[in-house]
Design a binder for these strands. Structure first.
Lengths: 163, 163
DNA sequence: ACAAGCCATGGACGATATCGACCGTAAGAT
DNA sequence: ATCTTACGGTCGATATCGTCCATGGCTTGT
């Protein structure tokens, strides 16, 4: 993990269709060593997968709903069951176990409020939840899958230190 | 948008490295028409981009913080400035304008609570916010970039209706 | 019956990925 | 002062795919 690796990751995070030649030029390497680095980044698990992002409007799910959940059950079995169940819902794209007041927070994508209502009914019919509160997003201002790379550690693995 | 298109999108959402031949086989087409459909899906904007997802632990940002923001300023100029500013922060991965109590909700990724504190200080030094409350995620149970495709409309564009 | 739309097949061209081999160099270690 | 290691650069060979023809056949709507 040096500056060049960071640059490569940064580029691929934005656009995974870039050819090795293009990346090589952008980071100031020739193609072969650049390709080697990408290989290593993949083998070491820095890059977990490459995916296509689809337009939410085109597939008719323009609405984000944040669902804050509280429960009375706080044992592992319940959590397992809950997690398993939620993962079945394709509408739930994010689910976090939280600290503080709220036990779980999830983001749900649906076509509109009516569809959310249908989802909500399905949800509460399957799980016992003591308190559910939904907040609707009016507008998504920023959304990116790109993580910040400034915090990545050098990790003197081989011996990679360029001035 | 028929069942085959949905299948193709579903596959590419999960793994964009699949070759057209593999996709073709999976959806029960031969390669050429399958390739054409993918072309169309891209031209029509169903597929917006292809990106690489990187491992958050590897790049040292394992912690999710949800930041709920309230403000007194409710004019367009302020929003523009706020949006512009937030988009500069690579740690802010999602930002929504909400309905209800909270004005804005964002997800921030950082290495640890200390780093979040540093981020927080940077944030409040740049924007005037009347109320900020942070919730830390203990665990990310589900996270996917794949949208549900069940809601996608048929959109009888050409004449595409399979049984 | 006819036309339109979609599929399958086959093939051709070119871009790229994917290596392997070899050399040069700079920094660290002994 | 060497020896070693870890790069990077270059060259080149394969082979896989993407890309895009052209043709023919099947089904469906009018």
């Amino acid at each position: 993990m040096d500056d060049i690796d960071r640059k490569i990751l940064g580029l691929l995070q934005k656009d995974a269709t870039l050819s090795t030649a293009e990346i090589a030029e952008a980071v100031g390497l020739s193609t072969t060593p650049c390709w080697r680095r990408i290989q290593i980044l993949e083998q070491e698990g820095y890059i977990t997968r490459r995916v296509a992002l689809v337009d939410r409007n085109k597939v008719n799910v323009p609405l984000d709903v944040f669902v804050a959940v509280r429960t009375n059950e706080h044992n592992w079995d319940w959590l397992d069951e809950f997690a398993r169940l939620i993962c079945e819902f394709p509408e739930v794209v994010e689910l976090y176990r939280m600290s503080g007041e709220i036990d779980y927070l999830m983001r749900v994508v649906v076509p509109d409020m009516a569809a959310y209502d249908a989802f909500y009914k399905k949800l509460i019919s399957k799980v016992q939840l003591s308190d559910v509160s939904s907040s609707f997003a009016m507008e998504r201002i920023k959304y990116t899958t790109a993580l910040p790379l400034d915090y990545a550690l050098e990790e003197t693995r081989g011996r990679r230190r360029r001035s």
